[in-house]
Write a protein that binds this DNA or RNA. Sequence first.
DNA 1: CGAGTGACTCTCATAATGCTAGTTATACGG
DNA 2: CCGTATAACTAGCATTATGAGAGTCACTCG
Lengths: 164, 164
Amino acid sequence: MQRKSYGNMQCPIARSLERVGEWWSILILRDAFQGLTRFEQFQKSLDIAPNMLARRLGALVKAGVLERRRYCERPPRYEYVLTERGRDFRPVLWALLAWGNAHFAPEGKSVVLIDSATGAEAEPLMVDRHTGRPLAAPAFRTAPGPAADESTRQRHSGGAGRIP
Amino acid sequence: MQRKSYGNMQCPIARSLERVGEWWSILILRDAFQGLTRFEQFQKSLDIAPNMLARRLGALVKAGVLERRRYCERPPRYEYVLTERGRDFRPVLWALLAWGNAHFAPEGKSVVLIDSATGAEAEPLMVDRHTGRPLAAPAFRTAPGPAADESTRQRHSGGAGRIP
DNA sequence: CGAGTGACTCTCATAATGCTAGTTATACGG
DNA sequence: CCGTATAACTAGCATTATGAGAGTCACTCG
């Protein structure tokens, strides 16, 4: 049977999920952003079986999101650090954090974003880098880009209904 | 064995992933934002087996992200529409889109965000809603919130290293 | 030499994924 | 009235991924 791959889709969301869409991957990245680097640290933090952790770390390394580095020659010890590609993933984590806080924290927020300088709570908001305007529908929407093929163009050719 | 659940974790990212972290779920939401509502539309768009689609739609409905509505009495026909909780998921999709475009589109972008008014391409950026400052490390970081318990507090008590 | 540490691999059970075919409820054309 | 079409699914079964737990390897330290 084999799990179907999104990899050959043109959609950038599908391409992203191909790399981080499996169970555990995103939580591993979350912990990497918290500063964890070693196998044992991830294992303790996530309470994950070591074989699963090894598979996921391997996949994230292959995807270029993490880098495996030897930090000790003898005995051989390795650490996993975010690459630039991995560090660019942060907005996704913050969007997930905001969504979780807004909808799945009935007892109140257990993790928040804060301004390191003032300690004030920050509220993530997506804006257009150029105009600074909040990215809300229907003022902003997706459209085929320069590399879009016919099928991608058709997805965006409307007719599907109102975009909420 | 059973797939381990993130549901009992306090972390809002884990809570979010508990709802949308499975294979296909996020792509279904992506299509819902594109305006698709009917079972058959999702099936064609995603090329997914009908039983898998039924399971995922059911899970998303149970999570309160989609709503199942009868849009035709006779014959009985249903549609799936985003709830407010579902519409709030949009920033996550846009963050994934931006990440995919930046890192996994070697032949160029096939999908972009545009300003509906001007047609200009938009570039998503996360800022603090209050101060308008870009949410970048290390100026912003996560911290335990009011509902944090001891284990959550320990995660954030530093000592794990520098946050990249 | 024996215990300890860190980073894994191996084996095996079970659950999730996925293909294909079939079902239900109804409309429509002849 | 009968056959075909459409939409939205379910059922049965193969294959794969996930996960628990134990074991391995390469050392260091006392």
